[in-house]
């Protein structure tokens, strides 16, 4: 398995380089360094000299991808791309264009993101699997039909509606919890209830539909018929056999998502005023802070690759027939 992991890690390097090149090109096509400087220096009374100084201080006065003025290897290394990208591979994210240490900011802001994403993920997973199994228990009955219709309806509603509707209903009408905000320590709990409920409810529709399909596929297999023939109750069949055998597709969806929980939820964090990594990324995009955008895209890619690797490894844990080689 170790050889497999090493091979996958090595495969990741060209992928990460590619992602970095793509981010770099896309960003600088839209935002040349002059624009970044202007954005940072403000609107009023910005002189061309101030723009030049700002660029020189941050290394944005170099050519983008190829330095024709330099000699030898420096033609590639004396570029913004090289200078800004190479350190990423050692997870040195450097400083944001406004001067903040990105690594420190990420380490601070991933916790609020996790504080929402973790419970949403866990509670959401258990709830959707539970409801999906219950629906399968009542398959081909009016209960099944009602839940499927409700799930389709819930899937069709925008996530924004859940957020605004939830804030209106729970925060404004019922006045049970704060509409938005965040705090540190245990004080954070009261601010997390609403986004977590909304996150769970918002994901129910699609979750129920997917898991219901997975379980229905399993329930017609021979081993299930055998289990029933043995005289096992429907509960035992579902929860002991069907659920266990449906684990591989569940893991495919679930494990890959775990590392990305760190990345935060863009819209939810913005609406609830939660200082997580989602709002960090959104703010960086609106401020044209390339250093942060690049770091977050890189981090997202690394976590995604890690998620896929974990998924592969998890297969071996739930299915003894799978071997990584």
């Amino acid at each position: 398995m170790m050889a497999y992991i090493i091979r996958r890690v090595l495969y990741a390097i060209p992928i990460l380089v590619g992602v970095n090149v793509l981010t770099f090109v896309l960003f600088f096509v839209v935002n040349p360094p002059d624009d970044m400087a202007r954005m940072n220096l403000g609107i009023k009374r910005v002189t061309p000299e101030a723009i030049q100084t700002w660029k020189a201080e941050r290394g944005y006065d170099l050519p983008l991808l190829y330095n024709g003025q330099a000699q030898g290897l420096e033609q590639l290394t004396g570029t913004i791309f090289f200078q800004k990208s190479v350190k990423l591979f050692s997870f040195d994210f450097g400083r944001s264009d406004s001067g903040r240490d990105i690594g420190y900011d990420i380490s601070q802001r991933m916790w609020p993101s996790l504080a929402i994403a973790g419970p949403v993920f866990l509670i959401g997973l258990l709830t959707t699997i539970g409801i999906a199994l219950a629906v399968v228990l009542f398959r081909a009955t009016p209960i099944d039909l009602t839940v499927v219709v409700a799930a389709v309806a819930m899937m069709s509603i925008s996530g924004l509606f859940y957020i605004i509707g939830g804030q209106w209903l729970v925060g404004k009408l019922l006045r049970l919890i704060p509409i938005s905000g965040y705090d540190t320590g245990w004080e954070a709990a009261k601010f997390l209830v609403l986004p977590v409920i909304i996150g769970v409810v918002g994901g129910l529709g699609s979750g129920i539909r997917v898991y219901r399909t997975l379980f229905l596929e399993e329930i017609h297999k021979d081993y299930v018929r055998t289990a029933r023939a043995k005289g096992l109750s429907e509960n035992a069949v579902l929860f002991r056999h069907v659920l266990r055998n449906a684990m591989i597709p569940i893991l495919t969806m679930v494990v890959a998502a775990i590392p990305l929980l760190f990345m935060g939820a863009l819209v939810t964090e913005s609406f609830f005023g939660i200082p997580g990594l989602g709002s960090y990324t959104i703010d960086a995009i609106s401020r044209q802070d390339f250093a942060i955008v690049r770091s977050m895209v890189f981090l997202g890619s690394v976590l995604y690759i890690l998620g896929l690797l974990l998924t592969d490894i998890s297969y071996t844990l739930v299915d003894p027939r799978v071997r990584l080689s």
Partner: peptide, 18 residues
């Protein structure tokens, strides 16, 4: 001074006296 990026929570919190 609390960060409030969206208008809806901002307005409602004002109406609630916060």
């Amino acid at each position: 001074h609390s960060l409030e990026k969206e208008d809806i929570p901002y307005w409602n919190k004002f109406l609630q006296g916060y």
